[in-house]
Design a protein around this nucleic acid. Structure first.
Length: 243
DNA sequence: AAACTATCCAACCGCCTATAA
DNA sequence: CTTATAGGCGGTTGGATAGTT
């Protein structure tokens, strides 16, 4: 029977020097120990996990496992087109600021988003100038698949709504002009901090805006997601609205 | 059916920053 | 003020699986 408090006594004088940390995939038992730790002690103080539970994992590994896999609020399953559109939009704005992008996607981790983007878009970005036949074929398949969805959306979605949404997003973004964040800063450290604050604030604003849009019945259109596909279609000489 | 390629994703690494001692 | 430590982040790796030739 698992008894953390008993184990505290057992391990409370610290781990043996030269502790060899376990690496690699986590076992179910390790997951259970970590979840039990968080249930009792809460998140944080990850370096105490080994001492308090007997887990042979370092703090970093524990934190990562919790954040990326065990957290109860994680959203499982594929990235939706809606989420994909947000990822594309925010990545275009902020670059590889995965953790910041992840804050706009509740239930998704920076690692997940990073993996998704690298798999789906990194290559496209690189190869965008010389799309080969293979990619074209794949694109066509995807287009066929999305066509039905697109048609459905077009029936219920007015393009003006999209303009409105993007305008609102821009507005929120510009409320805190980054140049202001920089202008009054003297040191590099201050600049960094101001930029970080700026991004956090913007992310929060946009998050609340997205929520507001959702609650007001705005369905963020998958058309945003199609933006990339549109780009490709254009390269191929096709009109996205006529797929 | 086998070989090859692409994709997915968990996990690690190294670096940086914040904070406590 | 300096140093040590913990936590956070982005980049990268490698194994598993799916898809293609």
């Amino acid at each position: 029977m698992f008894n953390l408090r008993a184990m505290v006594g057992h391990w409370s004088w610290g781990l043996v020097e030269d502790e060899v940390w376990r690496k690699g995939p986590w076992t179910a038992e390790e997951d259970r120990l970590l979840m039990e730790y968080v249930r009792i002690y809460g998140e944080g103080r990850w370096n105490s996990v080994a001492r308090l539970t007997g887990l042979k994992r370092n703090g970093k590994s524990c934190r990562l496992r919790w954040v990326n896999y065990l957290r109860p609020d994680l959203k499982r399953g594929q990235i939706t087109p809606h989420e994909e559109s947000i990822i594309l939009e925010l990545h275009a704005r902020w670059g590889n600021r995965w953790s910041m992008i992840a804050r706009s996607l509740p239930g998704r981790t920076d690692n997940e988003i990073k993996n998704y983007w690298r798999t789906h878009f990194k290559k496209k970005e690189k190869d965008s100038s010389d799309a080969n036949g293979k990619a074209k074929a794949r694109l066509l398949r995807r287009q066929q698949f999305h066509q039905q969805q697109l048609q459905q959306q077009q029936q219920q979605y007015n393009p003006m709504d999209m303009n409105k949404i993007m305008a609102l997003l821009e507005e929120e973004h510009d409320k805190n002009n980054i140049s202001e964040a920089l202008s009054s800063s003297a040191s590099e450290t201050e600049k960094r901090q101001n930029i970080t604050n700026f991004h956090s604030q913007t992310a929060n604003n946009e998050q609340s805006l997205l929520s507001e849009l959702n609650t007001n019945g705005f369905v963020l259109p998958e058309i945003l997601n199609e933006g990339l596909e549109v780009g490709w279609a254009m390269e191929l000489g096709g009109c996205p609205w006529q797929w």
